[in-house]
Amino acid sequence: MHPIKKQIVTDESMHPVAVIIDYNDWQNIEAMLQNLPEPSQATDLSSFAGSISLTVDPLAYQQQIRNEWQ
């Protein structure tokens, strides 16, 4: 894919709010998106099932990390 020439539109605070691209670039992007496979609605997550062994109490760890912020 070739580089896309773009213009960033900002608000009064200079925060980006929109992007302007060439119409031909948009058509190319749209065509590529249409060619992507649809995500599966019924994804099998059983391969991720299992258990973990914790070496530290989660609440104690959370308190330790929060104390580092101070």
Rank of each mutant, 00 (worst) to 15 (best):
H15G: 02
P58N: 03
N24K: 06
A18K: 01
T43W: 02
N35P: 02
S53F: 06
F48H: 07
K6P: 01
P16M: 02
W26K: 05
E38M: 08
T55Y: 02
I8D: 06
V56F: 01
I52T: 11
S13D: 11
L45F: 12
M14F: 03
S53G: 11
Y23W: 04
I21L: 10
T55Q: 06
M14C: 01
I4C: 07
S51W: 02
Q70M: 05
L33D: 09
V17L: 01
P58G: 06
E68H: 06
N67F: 03
M14L: 08
I52R: 01
L59D: 15
P16W: 01
Q34W: 10
D22N: 10
V19N: 00
H2M: 05
Q34H: 15
N28T: 03
T43C: 01
A49G: 09
L59Y: 13
T55I: 07
S40E: 14
I4D: 03
A42W: 06
W26P: 01
L54G: 08
N28P: 02
T43S: 02
T10H: 06
Q34E: 15
P16R: 00
I29D: 00
L36K: 14
K6H: 10
F48C: 11
Q41N: 12
E38K: 08
I4F: 00
D44N: 15
W69G: 11
D22I: 03
F48Y: 10
H2Y: 06
A49C: 07
A60I: 12
M32Q: 11
P58R: 04
S47Q: 10
F48R: 09
D22Y: 00
Q64K: 12
I20P: 02
A18P: 01
V56N: 05
I65R: 09
L33E: 15
A31L: 13
K5W: 04
E68L: 14
P37K: 04
M1T: 13
N35S: 15
M32V: 07
W69Y: 14
Q7M: 09
I8H: 02
Q64F: 14
S47P: 01
N28S: 10
D44T: 09
V9Y: 03
L59K: 14
E30N: 13
I20A: 06
I21E: 01
S13R: 05
N24W: 04
M32H: 08
Q34M: 15
Q27K: 09
D57N: 15
Y61A: 15
V19C: 07
E38R: 08
A18C: 03
I52N: 01
P37R: 05
A42C: 10
M1D: 11
D25R: 00
T55A: 08
V9H: 03
Q7K: 11
N28Q: 09
E38L: 12
Q64E: 15
N28H: 07
R66M: 14
M32L: 13
S46Y: 02
V9D: 05
Y23F: 04
G50K: 01
D25V: 04
M32R: 08
E68S: 12
W69F: 15
S13Y: 02
A31G: 08
I8S: 02
N24R: 08
R66A: 13
L54I: 13
K5F: 04
I21H: 01
G50T: 07
K5M: 05
G50M: 01
Y23R: 07
E12N: 12
E30S: 15
N35Y: 04
I52M: 07
M14S: 08
K6R: 09
D22T: 08
P58H: 04
